[in-house]
């Protein structure tokens, strides 16, 4: 475990805590895409099935369990507890356009043609695009609460930090994971526009607002 990887995981953890904090303090899920959150549950459940047959480390198991339970809890908050604050009419991204290609890609690109490996590949590809409904919603509404943008920034930082982690692993451990690296670079690239506005506006104390 190198520092890039550790900081990446901590950033991921922080993003979920920020998300829960936003929901609890504003008592609202306004501005959040239910579709993106549902995709994350799909990502975590399909990838972390190995919890049941492959032990890596206590750290690994604890984190996986946390990501599965917290993402399911967020869905519960959005669909039950704070349902009136959820507005599906602006969450209009067509998720089937993401799921279809991800199924196809995972059947073509996988490390072994087994059910578990195909699911793992699928989860990697799906994670790379799972944020799109959320970014699409942000684009549509054109503005967001600061706390929501901090959540997205932490999530984007997590993906960005995995890239130097892979470079480190390539040089120091002679290890490459072409599927994870390719999908990870795509995923990070999706945040570029968001980060530009985040750095130039939110971190300067201004509201997150997109030009009309």
């Amino acid at each position: 475990m190198n520092l890039f990887r550790l900081f990446g995981d901590m950033s991921h953890l922080a993003s979920i805590l920020l998300l829960l904090y936003k929901i609890q303090t504003t008592r609202s899920v306004r501005g959040l895409s239910f579709k993106t959150q549902a995709l994350y549950v799909t990502v975590f459940v399909t990838r972390y099935l190995d919890l049941f047959y492959d032990y890596v480390s206590l750290y690994n198991s604890v984190m996986k369990t946390f990501f599965i339970t917290s993402s399911c809890y967020v869905l519960y908050l959005m669909k039950k507890k704070y349902r009136p604050t959820n507005d599906p009419s602006i969450d209009t991204f067509r998720v089937e356009y993401l799921l279809g290609p991800c199924v196809l890609l995972s059947l073509i690109f996988n490390y072994r043609f087994t059910f578990a490996e195909i699911l793992w590949s699928f989860s990697i590809f799906l994670e790379s695009v799972a944020i799109l409904p959320q970014l699409f919603m942000l684009q549509r509404t054109g503005e967001a609460e600061a706390i929501t943008t901090h959540y997205l920034a932490a999530l984007g930082a997590y993906r960005a930090l995995y890239i130097p982690n892979w470079i480190y692993r390539y040089w120091m451990e002679d290890q490459v994971d072409p599927i994870a690296v390719t999908a990870g670079i795509v995923q990070t690239a999706l945040y570029v526009d968001f980060f530009y506005v985040y750095f130039t506006k939110v971190l300067q104390g201004q509201r997150f607002e997109l030009p009309a």
């Binding site: 890596v56 690994n60 984190m63 990501f67 793992w120 982690n165 892979w166 994971d177 994870a180």
Partner: peptide, 10 residues
Amino acid sequence: GAEEGHKDEL
């Protein structure tokens, strides 16, 4: 190994 991927990552 590379054919297994980075399964220790999250």
